[in-house]
């Protein structure tokens, strides 16, 4: 039986169908999780996808963290369930304090939609377990607020605990320490600015994101097996 991935939908989310499509292409099933419902519906992994949750008129993710579904997502994360935040989802996970730090405006003060090179830095996470350290992946970014910041102590901890999972080869947005993605101490909660689902088909220019999505499905499978 294929694993079930929950994809959180806030009003203003716009990448939910893309994540659904990419996950289904790899054999997973998708359950959309409406923001107003305080439930994770027994899924095997959760993706908080990209978009503009609640319009992002305030600080990105600042309202989304109060949606009822986020209480359930928090509980799910603390129970060890794989949770991936992509782009706006990363911003939401930071606001919800499931990950440290914050995403501020790009150094160039412009929205950026382009494909960038990322280096895989660690593989003991829900999103990189099928990749190899040192792999360089070409994956699109699509954000105005992707410039990662955190305080020096948090950064020291991220480094010491090997929690920077992806770094930009050529930093496009001013992120601290070239950080493109990080994880929590347990490696089950991951946030990244690039969109792996946008690099899931050679027809669209790159399939380098597939290894990340397969990692997610592998983590989901472990979770499903664990709970049986």
């Amino acid at each position: 039986m294929s694993v079930r991935v929950g994809v959180v939908v806030f009003p203003g989310t716009n990448c939910e169908f893309d994540v659904q499509y990419a996950v289904e292409q790899l054999g997973g099933r998708v359950e959309l999780l409406w923001h107003g419902e305080d439930s994770t519906k027994g899924v095997d992994a959760i993706v908080v996808p990209g978009g503009f949750a609640h319009g992002d008129y305030l600080r990105t993710g600042a309202i989304a963290r109060f949606s009822p579904v986020m209480r359930a997502v928090g509980e799910y994360a603390r129970s060890g369930g794989p949770v991936i935040g992509i782009c706006n989802g990363f911003q939401v996970l930071c606001e919800a304090h499931l990950l440290p730090g914050a995403l501020q405006k790009n150094a160039g003060l412009k929205f950026m939609c382009e494909t960038v090179a990322l280096r895989v830095e660690t593989t003991s996470t829900a999103l990189t377990n099928q990749a190899r350290v040192g792999d360089v992946l070409r994956i699109p970014i699509n954000h105005f607020e992707g410039n990662y910041v955190c305080d020096p102590r948090a950064l020291a901890q991220l480094r010491a605990e090997d929690r920077v999972i992806l770094r930009y080869v050529d930093n496009p947005n001013g992120s601290l320490d070239d950080i493109a993605g990080i994880c929590n101490a347990e490696g089950n909660v991951v946030g990244l600015m690039p969109h792996p689902e946008r690099a899931s088909d050679v027809l669209l220019g790159s399939s380098d994101g597939v290894v990340l999505l397969k990692s997610l499905l592998a983590a989901a499978t472990s979770r499903a097996t664990l709970l049986v």
């Binding site: 950026m112 939609c113 689902e197 946008r198 899931s200």
Partner: peptide, 14 residues
């Protein structure tokens, strides 16, 4: 100009 536009959403842009 074009990199300020999301030109990839919906995974259709060949």
């Amino acid at each position: 100009v074009s990199r300020q536009y999301d030109h990839q959403l919906f995974l259709n842009t060949v």
